[in-house]
Design a binder for these strands. Sequence first.
DNA 1: GCTTGACCTCAAGTCAACTTGAAGTTGTAG
DNA 2: CTACAACTTCAAGTTGACTTGAGGTCAAGC
Lengths: 132, 132
Amino acid sequence: MSKLDISEVSQASGLAPSTLRYYEAQGLIQSSGRKGLRRQYSPEVLERLNLIALGQSAGFLLTEISEMFTPNGPIINRDRLLQKAEQLEQKIKRLTAISKGLRHAAACPADRHLDCPKFQQLIKQSALSRLE
Amino acid sequence: MSKLDISEVSQASGLAPSTLRYYEAQGLIQSSGRKGLRRQYSPEVLERLNLIALGQSAGFLLTEISEMFTPNGPIINRDRLLQKAEQLEQKIKRLTAISKGLRHAAACPADRHLDCPKFQQLIKQSALSRLE
DNA sequence: GCTTGACCTCAAGTCAACTTGAAGTTGTAG
DNA sequence: CTACAACTTCAAGTTGACTTGAGGTCAAGC
């Protein structure tokens, strides 16, 4: 035990085996060896996969994520992190406005939400934050 | 006046002319006529473009957006809107956690943020919400 | 010992949303 | 009137993140 084969990792992570092989090819994860042809993974790979998912949600590209993992790869630049955080916060604002807009549209009695003043206003807001 | 040509719309919207032609080909916008070969747009197209950007931010595909615009296209299903709103709210939660994580990582004294307990916790949170 | 199913590799395909390139047309400034 | 920048079309290319397919390998159960 303690070694997982690809289907177990796939199960546990929710990622397709092909994705795991792809990630390995991109240098994002490593298999800890082979059993015959077959990749064996140590359980820590699951943590790594979570980290990757985290990075993706944060809007990093896979190549950026893999850079972060390299031993002395581009230092995880703190300014870069802060910058990403700010971008995310901007995005959160927009998404919040939009989600309100959608909820309103769903509840709005007007046949065409497009005509509803509240909705219009939310659109404008969102349009503005888009340009900032 | 009152008719804009493609470069003006491009300027005003921040979208490339090629994108505007592409949107037209996809049925997302219309030009209100031609002057010779050249498309002329009425100013309302800008509002439409905002709406498109809004939809994109909300996570709709262009094809879905264009459906919403069709005269008697698939009624803008209220359940669908609510569902999107919920998805967005989920996403907002995740992004919020991540942005906190990034800010913390940027401030964290630990050389490897990956080892920081607070950071670890944020990762776990985010990993969980990912599966819900 | 043979079949089967889960794995393997490598190249090519997919998808969304655009962009680019080649080759042609046209409104306008000089 | 001519030059030319800005448009036009249409097909093909790009990017990121995967997936699919063809063809091959291997361990385990019958």
